[in-house]
Simulated scan of single mutants.
Amino acid sequence: MTTPVPLLHVEDLVVTYPTPGGATTAVDRVTFTIPRGSALALVGESGSGKSTIAHAVVRLLKPTAGRIVFDGTDLATLPERRLRPLRPRFQMIFQDPYGSLDPHLTAQEIVAEPLRLSGPLAGTRDRTARTRRAAELLDRVGLPASARDRRPSEFSGGQRQRIGIARALASSPDLLVCDEATSALDVSVQARVLELLRELQAETGITYLVIAHNLGLVREISTDVVVLRSGRVVEQGPTADVLASPTEPYTRDLRRAALDPAAIRGRKPRELLHARGRAHTPA
Results as ranks from 00 to 15, higher is better:
residue 18 P to Y: 01
residue 186 D to I: 06
residue 69 V to C: 02
residue 150 R to Y: 04
residue 148 R to H: 14
residue 160 R to A: 08
residue 126 D to S: 03
residue 124 T to M: 03
residue 271 E to G: 02
residue 58 V to T: 14
residue 43 V to P: 02
residue 121 L to A: 00
residue 231 G to P: 00
residue 170 A to W: 04
residue 76 A to W: 12
residue 265 R to W: 07
residue 7 L to D: 08
residue 136 E to R: 03
residue 253 D to N: 04
residue 215 L to I: 06
residue 11 E to Y: 02
residue 150 R to K: 15
residue 226 V to F: 05
residue 215 L to G: 03
residue 122 A to E: 04
residue 283 A to Y: 05
residue 34 I to L: 13
residue 41 A to T: 06
residue 269 P to K: 12
residue 157 G to V: 08
residue 174 D to S: 14
residue 148 R to T: 08
residue 108 Q to R: 14
residue 196 L to D: 13
residue 78 L to A: 11
residue 2 T to S: 15
residue 98 Y to K: 03
residue 65 A to G: 03
residue 15 V to S: 05
residue 166 A to P: 08
residue 281 T to S: 13
residue 245 S to K: 08
residue 3 T to R: 15
residue 174 D to T: 12
residue 242 V to H: 07
residue 38 S to C: 07
residue 48 S to E: 01
residue 261 P to V: 10
residue 119 G to Q: 09
residue 57 V to F: 03
residue 117 L to P: 00
residue 208 Y to V: 14
residue 74 D to Q: 10
residue 170 A to L: 11
residue 85 P to I: 05
residue 167 R to V: 10
residue 228 L to W: 01
residue 162 R to A: 14
residue 61 L to C: 13
residue 189 V to Q: 10
residue 34 I to D: 02
residue 30 V to E: 04
residue 36 R to G: 12
residue 34 I to G: 03
residue 51 S to W: 06
residue 99 G to E: 13
residue 59 R to H: 06
residue 10 V to Y: 06
residue 179 D to I: 12
residue 193 V to P: 08
residue 2 T to N: 10
residue 173 P to Y: 12
residue 158 G to C: 06
residue 186 D to A: 05
residue 256 R to D: 15
residue 140 R to T: 14
residue 119 G to V: 09
residue 133 R to E: 11
residue 234 V to C: 04
residue 19 T to K: 03
residue 217 L to M: 14
residue 91 Q to M: 12
residue 247 T to Y: 00
residue 225 V to A: 03
residue 270 R to S: 13
residue 254 L to G: 07
residue 201 Q to W: 11
residue 256 R to H: 13
residue 93 I to H: 10
residue 171 S to P: 10
residue 200 L to C: 09
residue 236 Q to F: 00
residue 86 L to F: 05
residue 19 T to R: 02
residue 1 M to K: 07
residue 283 A to Q: 09
residue 26 A to K: 01
residue 35 P to Q: 03
residue 230 S to A: 14
residue 182 T to Q: 10
residue 12 D to L: 01
residue 107 A to P: 04
residue 101 L to F: 04
residue 136 E to L: 07
residue 172 S to R: 13
residue 270 R to I: 15
residue 69 V to I: 15
residue 262 A to R: 10
residue 157 G to K: 02
residue 191 A to E: 13
residue 88 P to R: 11
residue 218 V to Y: 05
residue 235 E to A: 03
residue 220 E to A: 15
residue 32 F to T: 04
residue 177 V to G: 05
residue 245 S to L: 03
residue 241 D to Q: 14
residue 181 A to H: 11
residue 151 R to A: 06
residue 245 S to I: 00
residue 178 C to Q: 09
residue 84 R to Q: 06
residue 201 Q to K: 15
residue 95 Q to S: 13
residue 131 T to V: 01
residue 176 L to W: 08
residue 255 R to E: 00
